[in-house]
Each structure stands twice: as structure tokens, then as C-alpha cells.
């Protein structure tokens, strides 16, 4: 089962920012309903863009969203205090976005996560910066998994983000992350891999084409979650088709249903 983390409720996006500032609940509800209908597994909620308003914005967004959907939420903030408050508000075990190995982030986040009923996204970032090789990504993933297991996390609840970097700046960025995903999925059995899929196409024209092909290639290597826009119909069609080809779709039923519903078109 591929985990789709719907990325649209993020106050860095202009329309969401305006809707949040104006307390336009209808806009948010409509967007969340559309994401759910399109196949989102989690709704990511990021209220960080209006500096100084994160807490009130998060409270408002969570209450509006939970009036609209039963889907679990992905709580997206670097601030443990905001996450603590949000954790107290959610009705289902959330996915926490995120922990990393950066010292200033790691210590408070481990403290925060300990004993909580939740899943977590773990970024392969440390104080030396973005990973530069397959080994970099894998070693950071391994450390994160070990640390999270030490505080009681099950592998099934850990989503490793290998940090997808754009093709436009270095030709090896695709291969590095694909090889790393395969290694993580083989050697750290049980964890999931996720991440901001569209980073791959930054700086290129026709980004959606790049994102779609990349998703299929990543899925072939074991990638089983993405932070993405579920309302992009074409990429959701690629997702379902690739999942079917991987053998995850009994009797190809989801694929056929998608075709009948008109969401998968050749």
C-alpha cells in the first residue's frame, strides 16, 4: 500500500496562506475533501509561513480539517512546542514531519517523540548538510532507525526521507537517491521511504512529466510513500499503474477500477 501524503495544506502556498489569514474555512475544507477523494492517505498540515502566527494558525487549521475528514494528519513543523499542542488536538495517531540528525533538531524531537503514539518522517540531514552519496543517505537512515527504535518506534512507523535533490543541478542526483532507496528498503527491512517528490524536477520545464517518470522509477526500487499533490491526476494514475505492475494490486482490481472511474487514461 503506497502512502500518499497530501502536501496542499501548506501556508507557504499563496492561496492557503491567504485562506488561513482570512480564516476562510470553506477554502480549506474544499481542498481537503478534494485531496481525500483523489487518494490521499495523510493530509499534511504546515502552518509555518506566517511568522509569529504558527500556533494560532495550526489550531485553526486542525479544527477546520478535522471537521471535514477522518483521514489521519501529518503534522509539519520544526517546533516541538507546536507539535506538542497539535498532538493534543488530533483525533487519530498522526505522522510527525519531521526529525533529522541536525543536533538542534534531533535532541528536542527525540524527547518529543518518546512515548507518543505516532509515526514519524526522518530526514537524512545532519549538521554537515545535504547528503552527497548513497552511503551518506544510507548511514544517516540507519542511525535514525536505530535511534528511533531505541525509544520504542516500530520500523513500520518510520518513514525515511532520503532528500530528493534536483536533476537540474547535478546529473547523478536521480541515481543516488534511487540506489539509496533500494538499499534502505533492503537493508533496513520494514521501514518506509518517502519525501518531496517534485524536488527532482526543480529548474526544469514540464515538471509534471519528470515527477511522473521519477515516481515510477523510484517505486521500482521500493519507494512506498511520497509527499505529493494527490490532485495531480496524471501522477496518481502513474502511481496506481506502477503499484499494479509491482504486484501490489490483487487481480489488478485497483487499476481496473481507476480506468472505469476515468482516473486512469492511456
Amino acid at each position: 500500500m503506497f502512502t500518499v501524503i497530501g502536501e496542499r495544506i501548506n501556508t507557504t502556498l499563496k492561496k492557503v496562506r491567504a485562506a488561513t489569514a482570512d480564516r476562510d474555512a470553506d477554502y480549506i475544507k474544499d481542498d481537503v475533501q478534494k485531496q481525500e477523494a483523489a487518494g490521499a492517505t495523510y493530509i499534511d498540515v504546515n502552518a509555518g509561513a506566517r511568522i509569529g502566527h504558527e500556533e494560532e494558525d495550526m489550531i485553526w487549521l486542525l479544527s477546520v480539517i478535522q471537521d471535514t475528514t477522518q483521514l489521519p494528519l501529518c503534522l509539519d513543523s520544526p517546533d516541538p512546542a507546536i507539535l506538542e499542542m497539535a498532538y493534543g488536538m488530533v483525533k487519530q495517531a498522526p505522522l510527525i514531519n519531521s526529525i533529522s540528525l541536525e543536533k538542534d533538531r534531533f535532541d528536542p524531537m527525540i524527547k518529543y517523540l518518546k512515548g507518543k503514539e505516532c509515526r514519524v518522517i526522518a530526514l537524512c540531514m545532519d549538521d554537515s548538510g545535504m547528503p552527497k552519496s548513497v552511503d551518506d543517505i544510507f548511514n544517516r537512515a540507519k542511525t535514525l532507525v536505530t535511534e528511533l527504535e531505541n525509544i520504542g518506534f516500530k520500523r513500520h512507523d518510520i518513514f525515511i526521507d532520503p532528500l530528493i535533490q534536483p536533476m537540474s543541478v547535478a546529473a547523478e542526483n536521480g541515481t543516488i537517491v534511487m540506489n539509496a532507496v533500494e538499499r534502505i528498503m533492503t537493508e533496513l527491512k520494514g521501514v518506509h521511504t518517502t519525501g518531496g517528490l517534485s524536488n527532482i524536477s526543480y529548474g526544469l520545464p514540464q515538471r509534471k512529466m519528470v515527477n511522473r517518470v521519477f515516481l515510477a522509477m523510484m517505486m521500482a526500487r521500493g519507494y512506498d510513500s511520497a509527499i505529493m499533490d494527490p490532485m495531480d491526476r496524471e501522477i496518481m494514475a502513474v502511481l496506481k499503474t506502477a503499484d499494479m505492475i509491482k504486484g501490489n494490486d490483487n487481480f489488478c482490481m485497483n487499476y481496473i477500477k481507476g480506468v472505469r472511474a476515468g482516473t486512469i487514461v492511456g
Binding site: 534536483p166 536533476m167 537540474s168 543541478v169 529548474g203 526544469l204 520545464p205
Partner: peptide, 10 residues
């Protein structure tokens, strides 16, 4: 203006 893309600029 978006006429050239990052790889071309590089």
C-alpha cells in the same frame, strides 16, 4: 524570464 532553464544556465 523563464526562456532558459537551470541546466542551460549551468
Amino acid at each position: 524570464t523563464g526562456e532558459m532553464f537551470i541546466p542551460e544556465v549551468l
